[in-house]
Design a protein around this nucleic acid. Sequence first.
DNA 1: TACACGTGGCC
DNA 2: TGGCCAAGTGT
Length: 349
Amino acid sequence: MRDGKGAIGESLLKWYDAHARVLPWRVSPADLAEGVVPDPYRVWLSEVMLQQTTVAAVRDYFRRFTERWPDVAALASAEDADVMAEWAGLGYYARARNLLKCARVVAQDLDGVFPGTATELQKLPGIGPYTAAAIAAIAYDEPVAVVDGNVERVVSRLFSVETPLPAAKPELTALTAEITPRSRPGDFAQAMMDLGATICTPRNPTCGRCPLVGECDARSRGIAETLPRKAPKKEKPTRRGFAYVVMNAAGDVLLERRPDKGLLGGTLGFPGSDWSEAPTPTPPLAADWVESPMEVRHTFTHFHLILSVHVARADTDGLTPRDTFRPADLPTLMRKVWDAAQSADWPQA
DNA sequence: TACACGTGGCC
DNA sequence: TGGCCAAGTGT
């Protein structure tokens, strides 16, 4: 069995050397072999962006962030609103707020140098067990177990772990630690994630192309696709609400910054009501309101939302000038509200 | 432990 | 089409 576990690392790294995905934040194995060292800033930024988020969604955001803020000192000096606008559309906005907090701690308290171990990294805002381990393994060659959703799936199948998640997490972490090699732990972690993303997929895994097919207990028992098991999910309730789009004759619009805590915290949006089964209409000012024929439907992690969008012409203080307002700076829900407002029957300006 | 927290793609 | 899923963290 000890040989079997060592063989996993060897087989996987051999596969990775031939099949590693080319990604904007990744240093190729060839460059690594020549002594190129991954930049902890870029590793950190990519790992935070990739939390619960697909590679396809992250690519352009990573490119824009690194062009605009090439190092942690630059990011630490950025305005909150600029970072929130650049993050708009990527979701889980607490990540953006913690990203900035973390950059400022590193820049101001740590001389611009990220901590050198997973244990120390995990003390920073927005860096949990996964991200701390990923940065330490990839940037510092620390042989720690890096366990994300891909690794949970791969390992649960390799060893036929039938305990449902999240209860299985400690066991999966221990098993991952056993198969993590002392040499090239960062490549091993990325190889596990590539394997999970391209071959050992949630549905229809292509075991015929898997470098670990001979080591996989679940495959030999014909239960690979049924793992990992997961605790049943709760049903999503449906909530309703009102959103209000105010525009003056010049095309300036009424926007507000949402409180830092809670849903869409720190993001820009249109004023609105509470979101509940029976919301109370709360227009931000007295005006001749017109309801858009298009409702906005949006699903968050834990509930469905249906918004009735109302529009009005009005002059008031604090409008965002037409030429500085970009719908792309809004979270997706508010971008949908804006789109719905366009199809309303606006009164003449 | 359980829940809050976004979004887009897939079948 | 609606539920599932993706490189999780904070409370």
